[in-house]
């Protein structure tokens, strides 16, 4: 690498390129990349546009999802009309909130242990945290189902087993996210607090925790998203319970209520608003502190 760089340097030094071409090429490269990026972004929003359009659709027959037939506002007012839709949303929220709290708590503790403490078995721990991320979901779901069935849990599959499964696959992501934040933190700030006679608990509460907070919040958001949207593992562990993704999956086999697309659009709008608000709040705070 170094050798080839050096030889290249000599070659180009001997024949310098015409100076006018370089900025022109760079201008093109700059704008080409930007243009490509924007195109990719547009591509990412195409299905969202469809989901919004279909939320205003009034299908004439049953299961009419493929084509937009006529415009109506009424779907947005009758979200709970399709049987079981709102129950599935409630269950999904309950599952995701519980799983997020548990996974964030356990995962944050693990991340602190791995970054701040030394002990035997660290690499084994890292391996066990890494493995769930390298395991396809279908394998995790099926092995959990096999375990629940063999332990005689067939009858009670539902909220508890879904939460157990979701915490399991969210944990590794929480550990990785929080760890990344902790590793980047300046340890001198905590030493300074200790030097100023803060005890360990005060240091943790007043210095360490606030500094680690962005990582913990990011981990919680990630967990919530992973959990709320999970279909594969949930399909194995839910028994007769129906979360929102399972409801959508079930509905595709029967008639397909346009209210599903209302929920999809609303989820998009709400989370978009939350993220934008959080960003604005962060900006205001950072201008204050400056």
């Amino acid at each position: 690498m170094t050798g080839s760089l050096a030889s290249r340097e000599r070659a180009t030094a001997a024949v310098p390129p015409p100076p006018a071409r370089r900025p022109a090429g760079r201008w093109l490269a700059d704008h080409l990349v930007l243009l490509l990026g924007i195109l990719v972004l547009v591509y990412m929003f195409v299905p969202i546009g469809y989901i919004f359009a279909l939320s205003f659709n009034q299908p004439s027959g049953r299961g009419a999802t493929a084509e937009f037939e006529s415009f109506t506002w009424s779907n947005w007012g009758s979200v709970c009309e399709p049987e079981g839709l709102c129950e599935s949303l409630k269950l999904s929220f309950a599952v995701s909130l519980t799983a997020t709290v548990l996974a964030t708590l356990l995962g944050t503790l693990m991340a602190f242990a791995l970054v701040r403490h030394s002990f035997r078995g660290r690499s084994a721990s890292n391996l066990l945290i890494f493995l769930p991320m390298a395991t396809p979901e279908v394998v995790m779901g099926s092995s959990l189902l096999a375990m629940f069935v063999s332990l005689g849990f067939d009858g009670v599959l539902g909220f508890v087993t879904i939460v157990i499964a979701h915490v399991m696959f969210c944990l590794s992501f929480v550990v990785v996210t929080v760890k990344a934040r902790l590793v980047g933190m300046d340890a001198r700030l905590e030493q300074a607090a200790m030097d100023l006679y803060a005890n360990e608990w005060q240091t943790f509460r007043l210095v360490t925790l606030p500094l680690a907070m962005p990582g913990i919040v990011a981990a919680a958001l990630l967990s919530f998203t992973l959990s709320f949207d999970d279909f594969i593992v949930t399909n194995f562990t839910a028994g007769q319970s129906v979360t929102f993704p399972l409801y959508v999956y079930g509905a595709k086999l029967k008639d397909f209520p346009p209210q599903l697309f209302v929920v999809g659009s609303a989820m998009f709008l709400v989370s978009f608003a939350v993220v934008i608000a959080a960003e604005l709040w962060r900006r205001r705070r950072s201008t204050w502190s400056r």
Binding site: M44, F45, P47, I48, I51, T225, D229, F231, F244, P245, V248, Y249, K252, L260, F261, V263, G264, S265, M267, F268, S271, F272, V275
Partner: peptide, 10 residues
């Protein structure tokens, strides 16, 4: 943002 809507709906 597009990934805040459900995977199945997308």
């Amino acid at each position: 943002a597009p990934f805040f809507t459900s995977f199945l709906l997308r």
